[in-house]
Design a protein around this nucleic acid. Structure first.
Lengths: 196, 196
DNA sequence: CGTGCACTTGATTGAAGTCAAGCGCTGTGG
DNA sequence: CCACAGCGCTTGACTTCAATCAAGTGCACG
């Protein structure tokens, strides 16, 4: 039905390497500030529209969603699942306020990586810099794959891919959210599900 | 009508830095193999579907397009304009054959950066590695912006953005290509243009 | 001069959106 | 304990807008 795609990338291998390196060099003061473990309740916000994104989030368990509001409607741009990374690149790289919200769809456990400290650490320890460069490459790959998929696959196919990625977890996402993510209406998605 | 967006990023600043660094260290044998200047005639191919992408292309003048074929139809995924970078990340990072063609839409002047040599150079000169990391970040940002734009803007708005980016150059692109890029039919694009 | 290509315009079709109602839970209060 | 309000999802009828099909125009080039 559809090509194998890299719309979803498991970053855990590289993230764990970075965490391990940070632990190794724990005599560096800055390391205390880099990593924070966070738990969120369903519907809690990680970031509001208009805020400056100061962190990269690495999701251990749960789901969050990115969305913006246009003409009063919530439009979901992406979900994050366990072992995904979520952040607002535009806000971080251009130092601009976010256009999007990041919100917990279910209860979540995650790591928050503070950009400012992280950047200091990276500049001091080139091994971390190297791993980080690899993660950025994979992140770019994932984005390119999503762009490709958006053109290549129909909404029905992309629903199928989503189901295959996280068959169990998707059950916890309201249909409205999934429809918004796919760019179709609730009703159309319901009809897609019906015919099978 | 639409938010300022970073769908198109000018990489020339960083690319020139990298070229300058490469010139500085020209005693390194590898440098000879990294950069190649290429000129293409309209409709020449830089990469065919099924080939392994071994280069990153930096466009000096002209336009090229990325497209794939689905059910006999050419579907354009992106254009590259002067100062753009074009490559097939998936092919490079995962060492897979390309699903896409890269083809010159007009006569083009470009630099071809040979990945293999480039990677060696990067590992030897950390300054180049640093600039490259920055380029990768910007590349990821650009992709994220395109994804956002695809949801946020209508086809008509995205046509407008394309026109604003390259008002002169877009004239050389057949309407069929632009329609394919926007994900609409030739006829619909013609009607969009008519009403104004 | 005529053939082909790029684009436009018009008429018809079809798929997804909209509007509206209904079903089956769950949870709360009389 | 039942009643019913609310939510998440489904289903149906109707509408809308882009795709499709089909001509037609203008221009470029041999």
């Amino acid at each position: 039905m559809h090509n194998k795609s890299n719309i979803y990338i498991d970053y855990s291998f590289y993230i764990q390497q970075i965490f391990a390196e940070i632990n190794n060099i724990s005599d560096d003061e800055e390391c205390k500030f880099v990593l924070k473990e966070i738990t969120l309740k369903k519907n809690d916000f990680l970031l509001n529209e208009g805020e400056y994104c100061k962190n990269i989030y690495y999701l251990k368990s749960g789901i969050f969603r990115n969305y913006y509001i246009k003409e009063g409607n919530e439009i979901i741009t992406s979900f994050a699942f366990p072992s995904d990374i979520s952040t607002i690149l535009r806000s971080i790289l251009l130092n601009e306020p976010s256009r999007e919200y990041i919100q917990a769809v279910t209860d979540c456990d995650l790591y928050s990586i503070a950009i400012e400290s992280y950047q200091k650490i990276k500049s001091r320890y080139s091994i971390i810099d190297k791993i980080d460069a690899k993660i950025t490459q994979l992140y770019a790959l994932m984005l390119e794959e999503r762009l490709f998929s958006l053109k290549f696959h129909t909404a029905a196919e992309r629903y199928q891919i989503l189901l295959e990625r996280e068959p169990l977890i998707v059950k916890y996402i309201p249909l409205t959210y999934i429809a918004s993510y796919l760019g179709i209406t609730l009703e159309t998605l319901s009809r897609i599900r019906a015919q099978k």
